[in-house]
Amino acid sequence: MLDIKKYAAIDIGSNAIRLLISTVTDVEGRPPVFKKTSLVRVPIRLGSDVFVNNAISERNIQRMIDSMKAYQLLMDTHQVKAYKACATSAMREADNGLAVAERIKEETGISIEIIDGDSEAAIIAATDLNDLIDSKKSYLYVDVGGGSTEFTIYSHGETITSRSFKLGTVRLLNDLVSPETWIELEQWIKANTKSLEGIDLIGSGGNINNIFKSSGKAMGKPLSYFYLSSYYQLLTSLTYEERIVQLNLNQDRADVIVPAAKIYLSAMKWSKARKIYVPKIGLSDGIIKTLYNQDKAALST
């Protein structure tokens, strides 16, 4: 029997808002196949409002409402079975975050769940990450966002520990990360990885995806510490305008990619990892998988 359904995930981050629509194909006796059908990204950059002024501006509230109306139309057109919208660091810290979520619900019909760092890490863990890693090895998973970065340590197929740090690309661009935060992160990584031999990184987020694409590496192959370090040196040697022209970066990517690369490099240095894998999974993928699992569980009861 063949069963095909579409699910949607809305990820409201500190740098951008994304809609991912995935088609899930179930064939009896086989594992489900997840295929990304549509991905729309709007760089609203809520973090620039919230991390500086503690609230989302009226201009960006209206941009969010317009985006959600468009997303609702796309989901209706695709005949999406179920969706989930999650907001992370920026809306979580905004004084008017809950009020904005209520306004969006009233004007667009889309319900937004504001989640904490632990919930974000748990949703990401719902992806097929375990299918991508070697159960005999150890990994430090690093998901860099605009407002925060989630770190999870896996060893021999088990989750050892995880933590969210207020260390994101938009915060760094606005000089809102204290030296103490960097020191705390360094100590946490070193303390939790010192006993793990041959650890590798797993990188998640739009910036590392962009860096991986520029490398020309085949999917599944890792980037070396040397490559990432060399690319970071190239990024910092160019101006914002030169990154757009010479590296063909979008204007909303050309600035945040620099602090993102610094976070990944720092994590590699402190964990003594020499390679970073980039499987192109994140919060949106975790939401899709969660929706699918909930749907299957409901059908079986």
Rank of each mutant, 00 (worst) to 15 (best):
F51T: 03
A87P: 07
N54W: 00
Q79A: 13
I65S: 07
A122S: 04
V42T: 13
K35E: 15
N96V: 08
L129T: 08
P32Q: 07
K35F: 15
T127G: 06
P43Y: 09
R45Q: 03
N53H: 13
A70M: 05
S22K: 05
E102Y: 00
S135G: 10
N96A: 01
Q62R: 14
A125Y: 02
I17N: 02
E106H: 10
S67H: 10
A70V: 08
S135D: 13
S57T: 00
N60K: 15
K137Y: 09
T77S: 14
K36M: 15
Q72D: 13
V40R: 14
K105R: 02
C86N: 01
G109H: 01
S111I: 07
G97Y: 04
N54M: 01
S135M: 06
R30G: 08
L132P: 09
E93Q: 11
L98I: 10
M91S: 00
A85H: 03
D26G: 14
L46S: 05
Y83Q: 10
I112M: 05
V52T: 13
T127Q: 05
N130V: 14
Y83V: 04
S135P: 06
D95N: 11
K105S: 05
L98P: 06
E28I: 12
I112F: 04
Y139C: 04
I17F: 12
P43Q: 14
F34Q: 04
R30W: 11
D49F: 09
I133V: 15
